[in-house]
Design a protein around this nucleic acid. Sequence first.
RNA 1: GUGGGCGUAGCUCAGUUGGCAGAGCUCCGGAUUGUGAUUCCGGCGGUCGUGGGUUCAAGCCCCAUCGUCCACCCCA
Length: 425
Amino acid sequence: MAKIKAIRGMNDILPEQTPWWQFLEESTQSVLSSYGYQEIRTPIVEQTDLFKRSIGEVTDIVEKEMYTFADRNDESLTLRPEGTASCVRACEEHGLLFNQVQRLWYAGPMFRYERPQKGRYRQFHQIGVETFGMQGPDIDAELILIGARLWKKLGVDQAVSLQLNSLGSSVARQAYKEDLVAFLSKHVDELDADSRRRLQSNPLRILDSKDPKTQALLHQAPDFHAYLDDESRQHFQQLCEYLDAAGIPYVINPRLVRGLDYYGKTVFEWVTDRLGAQGTVCAGGRYDGLVEQLGGRATPAVGFALGVERLILLLESEAGLAAERLQQADIYLLPLGAEASKAAMQLAEGLRNETGLRVLLGCGGGSFKSQMKRADKSGAEIALLLGEDELSQQRVTAKPLRSGEEQQAISWQALSSYLNNRFKS
RNA sequence: GUGGGCGUAGCUCAGUUGGCAGAGCUCCGGAUUGUGAUUCCGGCGGUCGUGGGUUCAAGCCCCAUCGUCCACCCCA
């Protein structure tokens, strides 16, 4: 019988890895909480239409990357490919956007049917941050400051840089798109195949093309910044002033175009050159039109999402997080024989009550030698030996595992204070 | 969806012009009956990804297929 394996592109995160996940999650949560952001949790499955209407019908995500299936009642459901749509839906559904301001975050798995590669998986994790009801560039700047603070906290601030652009109003964007298509259509034969296709599907993406001939052609194309409406221009300039004042370096990248249809005005990406092809570690922008598009009252909104897997790859490459053996426990209580084992379980409970130390109890028997090996492997500082002699005298033998110190006998009564004393640092 | 690299023990990998399936690490046991981590000895562990084909003989050659990694597309 064939072995059952995990689904392609969906990874198990093993005990060796989870400390980095916890580190990232805890760091993010504490940073967000220090800015007054609140967590929201939404289901990972939604009606398919939610994503079609928010992300855009003709995007790659909707056309070929969604995990879509029929529920038992034939309703079309989809595993969320991103978090913003669900967040907006939930806020709207529960009246969180009516005459108020929201600063929210969420974390969890997203699903896209793509070919896996470094930093890209079919089930991947994002931590998303969304704000509603604030139209000024100050909130855009705040989101960027949150990112900057987080990179510092994680120790990757030297590895990432900020790219910034404005996509303008939808009217300006539409006008530009038409002129760009008109221009490029006259030079179809000079375009690479991918860009030719994008002429239909997503013309702005052509600006991003890696093809040198296409890039050369783009020099003569209409300049997007000339199309920017006054309001967007001003918004963008003010954002830059906020960032200058905060001392946040950035690069204005006029070719930065986000993939999802709902973005307008501010867009930004935190990128790194240390992860191969998947350089975007965090990205976001303003989506003032989305709430209304999903049936709510017009509400300004900005947000971003960071890719957890990519950030963890970066942590590993930067902070040298891979290295050391993980210390699983502080003390390893090692009973010998059935009677000792019963007493040891009680003793361990008592130590957990009285010391707050991590106490690993040797279970499952085995020879003394193999028990000692397990004690060593656990990374514990001290092994507490409990055999027949110790049992009859209500003592343990405390053996330091990480130094040359002599072992010594300690009475059960004095054990907690001995350990508390030893581990207070 | 497209292109390339790689699939041999739990892990990391050798395997010669086609000729008995290997090492290191891990794990278990012993040297040392209650002292780990160092050392020495022994042991457990294999559908050589899968299915066909060529051959007296295939881990090795051919075809197909699956998986994985990297890249394209696209995206966090």
